[in-house]
Structures are given as structure tokens and as C-alpha cells.
């Protein structure tokens, strides 16, 4: 196989582009796709201060690496979730990534800073771990951006993530979620702007970026993810992609071009007030936001080992909306 651009030996075949690339020209393609996503959706500019939500996985490290390489001002923000060895390893990898490149990384620990961890929250609330985890991540990203004076929070969601979430939302015809599924969410009501610069790259491509760039990332999965619906949707979409390359991109970009504009009216946010504890915007009846309520409920609870939940979880299938 030869590189489409230089005719040198290729390292990767990309069926959806009907082409093969050497490492250098594969990088060029990725940069072009990311730049296109940033420009097309007016995500941010080179003057903006960007906070990248990093997990130590391939996508968040790839997006951080690309943004820095493209000349953006991007700092990292990592949340230690307390999910056993998985969290330990992902923290080490993230810290090393930042240190080797001299990048600013802010670390927040659920256990040390807020007195609980994801397994304990799952036990106390009686809900799946991803529920407390997603709630905590969204809350803390927003808060970190607000307190740190950042213009935008960037996450590593890729094309496969977005296509799988879209598939799930469409299966349920969840109009509220469909309306909000855009590559950029504008700031407002105390929430920072949020952007997903990797929406034009598949996860095979973001993984290839990391491997070819020599980026060490967490390969093992979060033990809580096994068998969730999000993964089942990805499997279905990949089966389709295999038969008909380009299906995922067409599904997602068709939604953005033709469906999403029709849902603009449904994109309104709820009426919000400020949490009396942490000053975060929050809806509903309570004076206190959902995160502060979670902190309260888990206070003084004994830590729950991860293994307990993994076993329990394999018996009951869970659903997530992919946060």
C-alpha cells in the first residue's frame, strides 16, 4: 500500500477516505479534519483559553496534543474518580504526558477534595456508576472553567462517540437530547462554552494518532464500562461501517446538516438559579445543586471497593448517554 499523497509506504488504510497514508500525511489529514471542525463550528480561536478535560485515554490526550501543536492555548484538567487501578494508571499517564511536554495540568480528586469516589457514590445512590461519574465530571468541568477563567471546555468526543450517542437518542426519539447534540454548546447562564474538536475523526484515527506520535495512553477500559449500551451501539455501527465505509460519518454529518437546524427551538435551557453551596447554575426545586446533594449523601460513607460493583454490574445491563 502506498500513501495517497507521497506514494511512500503507507502505515494506515482509511476505507472511508478510500485511501492509505504514511505517518506524516496521516497527521496532516488529522490536523485538517480538526481545523475544519474548529472553524466550521466556530469553536474557539488562538486567543481563547482552553481547558481540556483529560482522562488519560486516547481521545483526550490526542485532542490536547493536537491543539497544542496547532498553536492553541490549552491547559489540562484531570479528575481522579477513585475507580481502583484504572484511575491510578490513568492519572500517572496523564501527569507524565503533561510533564514531558511542559503543559499545565490541574488535578482534582473526588476523594480528597469532595470526600467520595465513584464506586461509593454508586452504592449510596443505588444507581449505575456512570450516573454519579457523569454528573460529577460535568459539574467539575464547568466549575473549573468558571473559576479558572477559561473561555471553553474541550472534550475528546470523537466521531464514533457522537454517532453512537446519536443512534441511541434517535432510537428513543429523545428530542431534548437530539437538540443539544451539537459539536459546540454556547456559554450561557453560568455554563462555559463546550466544544468537541474530534467529531470529524473516528476512534481508529485518534488511536492511530497516539500510536504514531508515541503517546502513551490508558489502553485498558474503565471497569464500569463493560457491556454498556454505548458500546453495543458502537459495535452495531462498526458492523455497518465495515460493509459500507463512510456510514458513520454520513449518519452524523447528515444529522448536523439537515436535522439539527430544525431542532434549534428545542435547544433552550431550563430556568436556572445558583446553588447556595457552590454557586453553580442549577435547575429544579432544590436550593442545592445535584453535585452538592451527592456530596452530602456520600459524606462519612465507607469507601466501596471497585470489584464489588463490577461483579454486580455484569449481572445487570446499564444504559448511558455517553458523557
Amino acid at each position: 500500500m502506498k500513501c495517497r499523497t507521497c506514494r511512500g509506504p503507507a502505515v494506515i488504510d482509511l476505507p472511508r477516505h478510500n485511501a492509505n497514508f504514511c505517518a506524516e500525511h496521516f497527521f496532516e489529514l488529522c490536523r485538517r479534519q480538526v481545523t475544519k471542525a474548529i472553524d466550521e463550528h466556530a469553536m474557539f480561536g488562538t486567543d481563547d483559553r482552553i481547558l481540556v478535560a483529560v482522562s488519560g485515554g486516547k481521545d483526550s490526550l490526542a485532542v490536547w496534543d493536537m491543539l497544542v501543536e496547532l498553536g492553541y492555548r490549552a491547559d489540562g484538567y484531570y479528575i481522579a474518580l477513585g475507580i481502583g487501578d484504572y484511575s491510578e494508571e490513568s492519572r500517572e499517564i496523564t501527569e507524565r504526558f503533561a510533564a514531558e511536554r511542559g503543559l499545565a495540568l490541574r488535578i482534582e480528586s473526588l476523594r480528597d477534595d469532595h470526600g467520595f469516589d465513584v464506586p461509593t457514590a454508586a452504592k449510596v445512590t443505588g444507581r449505575v456508576p456512570c450516573s454519579a461519574c457523569g454528573l460529577s465530571k460535568r459539574h467539575l468541568f464547568d466549575r473549573a472553567a468558571r473559576e479558572g477563567g477559561y473561555d471553553v471546555v474541550v472534550t475528546g468526543h470523537n466521531l464514533d462517540d457522537e454517532a453512537a450517542v446519536l443512534f441511541g437518542n434517535a432510537l428513543r426519539w429523545d428530542v431534548e437530547y437530539l437538540a443539544r447534540q451539537t459539536p459546540v454548546l454556547e456559554a450561557g447562564d453560568g455554563f462555559p462554552r463546550k466544544a468537541k474538536p474530534l467529531v470529524r475523526l473516528s476512534e481508529r484515527e485518534t488511536a492511530a494518532w497516539c500510536i504514531l506520535r508515541g503517546i502513551d495512553y490508558v489502553i485498558e477500559e474503565c471497569p464500569m464500562a463493560a457491556g454498556n449500551r454505548h458500546l453495543q451501539y458502537k459495535e452495531l455501527l462498526n458492523a455497518l461501517e465495515e460493509k459500507s465505509p463512510g456510514s458513520k460519518a454520513a449518519f452524523y454529518s447528515g444529522f448536523l446538516d439537515r436535522m439539527s437546524p430544525l431542532l434549534a427551538d428545542d435547544r433552550r435551557r431550563d430556568v436556572l438559579h445558583r446553588c447556595v453551596h457552590c454557586d453553580s447554575p442549577t435547575g429544579g426545586e432544590s436550593e442545592v445543586c445535584a453535585f452538592c446533594r451527592l456530596v452530602e449523601r456520600t459524606r462519612g460513607q465507607e469507601a466501596v471497593p471497585v470489584e464489588m460493583l463490577v461483579k454486580k454490574k455484569s449481572r445487570s445491563r446499564t444504559s448511558r448517554r455517553g458523557d
Binding site: 500500500m1 502505515v11 476512534e203 500510536i211 477500559e221 454505548h230
Partner: peptide, 30 residues
Amino acid sequence: LVIRNGTLVPGDGLLEADDTIEIRPVVSGG
């Protein structure tokens, strides 16, 4: 993705009998 000696091998790449390779799943759950 298929990895040999720290780099990727494309679809038609030939893997030799004495190679050590890794098949890396790229799908993440979170």
C-alpha cells in the same frame, strides 16, 4: 489497529511467521 515494532501495519501489510504483533482494540466506552 495492528502494531509491529511501535508502528502501524496497514491492511495489506504482511506479517511474518517470526513477528510479534499487537492487535489493539480502539473502541472506548466512556
